[in-house]
Simulated assay, not measured.
Amino acid sequence: MLSLLLLLLVGTTFAQESGDYAEENFDQLIKVTNDEGNNFESFDEANDEKEDECDENGLSLSQESDNIEPDVTEKAEDAVCPDKGTCSYHVFFASRTFQRARRICRCRRGNLSSIHSYGTNNFLRRFLRKTCRNISYVWIGVWKRNTCFPYRNIDRSRLDYANWASGQRKSYGRWCVAMNLHTGQWFSLRCRTRLPFLCTF
């Protein structure tokens, strides 16, 4: 009986150790698969200020190659800019990752555009379709930091409107959001995807 108990104890310990190893490897595989080279340490709140430091010309020291100007600017109506009296939307045709697009907007004292109503979404879709004939998607200012965080506006305003395409409000992992210019619907894409982008400032 004692030898049977001892055998059971050793077997359980071995199985548990093997299971732990398999579980650790599975977690690592999930992490690698979801990240797909998508390195987000730069999105940590602690690093936000450092990453967005801008020189006196409005450009961060790490972005000299991104000294680009908006291709099209459209002044918005008061109703389209709920947090400000007036604002303008600026479209950059140059394709950038979400993080790089965010930096470019912030170094011009703005941000990737947050959208707070159907009217604004429709206004932007029409404006972008008219000016960006060869472009299908643009980054907007919505992202999901990781599985534990909800989608939010990058400018920290309340996410009080969304226009998700079917199945696109993905819950697991890290995602950045782009608008489809043909439909106005929102898609969750890998943040290292390079797309044109829309800033508000």
Rank of each mutant, 00 (worst) to 15 (best):
T147G: 15
I135M: 10
R106F: 04
A101L: 01
T147M: 13
Q63Y: 05
K31V: 00
N47L: 12
C132N: 15
C148W: 09
C199P: 12
N163V: 01
E56A: 08
I30V: 15
T183C: 11
N57M: 09
C105M: 05
Q168R: 08
P82I: 03
T183R: 04
D83M: 02
N25L: 04
H182D: 15
H116S: 12
L5G: 02
R152D: 05
T73N: 14
G37F: 07
K130S: 13
G19L: 05
R190N: 15
N180S: 11
D52C: 04
R190G: 13
F123Q: 13
E49H: 09
F26C: 09
E74L: 06
D52F: 05
N121M: 03
L6P: 02
R125V: 01
C176A: 15
F123A: 14
T120G: 07
A76T: 12
A76S: 12
A15C: 08
E53H: 05
L181E: 14
F92D: 03
F43S: 05
Y118K: 14
G37E: 13
A165P: 04
E74I: 09
F26Q: 13
A76N: 11
R96Y: 08
E23D: 13
E41H: 10
R133D: 08
A162H: 14
Q16R: 11
R100F: 00
